[in-house]
């Protein structure tokens, strides 16, 4: 990426790790899945089912995991490394929205629909990442409906929490604006 990343201080509940659960790095996919709120309620047996359908990928420093505007396909969990979430516009400097570390997850809204990604995710260092995608979730919903519903309900909670934070932030900004 050639564009210089400009750091911004404003909070971004959609992309930041608002769940703040930092864990020791674990090589085990199972342990990493357990640490993600979307899979937190699952039993060991159910996690083993999820483990079968996730994709484990390695990204080099600077390599995009996905680009802003790409059709959304699913979420990623960082096993090891860190990922910059960046807004990229043509002929403009890129804006850094958040930097996510080990155990954080991102792109979860794409589990719900194919809307274009609202930011790019770029590996800040060499990364080990787990991907969980919408087609696999749909397949799971059909084959193991009880497990699928558990995941969907947890996903709804995560999305709800992000919405609540966004709402709080918006209210705060509105108050500040009205006070001026």
């Amino acid at each position: 990426m050639d564009n210089k990343i400009e750091s911004v201080k404003m909070s971004n509940p959609i992309w930041e790790n608002i769940f703040k659960r930092r864990h020791a790095v674990s090589e085990s996919v199972l342990q990493n899945l357990k640490n993600v709120p979307i899979f937190a309620d699952l039993t060991e047996k159910e996690l083993l089912e999820v483990e079968k359908i996730v994709h484990r990928r390695k990204y080099k420093k600077g390599e995009p995991v996905f680009r802003m505007g790409d059709p959304g396909l699913g979420m990623y969990i960082i096993v090891e490394g860190s990922v910059d979430i960046v807004e990229e516009y043509e002929n403009e400097e890129s804006k850094l929205l958040a930097t996510l570390e080990d155990g954080a997850f991102f792109g979860d809204l794409a589990l719900l629909d194919e809307a274009p990604r609202s930011a790019s995710a770029i590996a800040k260092v060499d990364c080990d990442i787990i991907g969980f995608f919408r087609p696999d979730l749909m397949d799971l919903l059909y084959r193991k409906p009880q497990l699928g519903i558990k995941i969907l309900f947890a996903l709804a909670r995560v999305v709800g929490e992000r919405l609540r934070r966004t709402n709080e932030l918006l209210s705060e900004l509105q108050r500040k604006y009205e006070a001026q």
């Binding site: 079968k52 994709h55 995991v65 790409d70 991907g131």
Partner: peptide
């Protein structure tokens, strides 16, 4: 089915990964 699909997808470079999956 899933094992065959995963083994195939695992060979695809990161650049084309999401595109290929989709």
């Amino acid at each position: 089915r899933r094992l065959i699909y995963h083994s195939f997808i695992a060979q695809i470079p990161n650049k084309y990964f999401e595109l290929s999956l989709n």
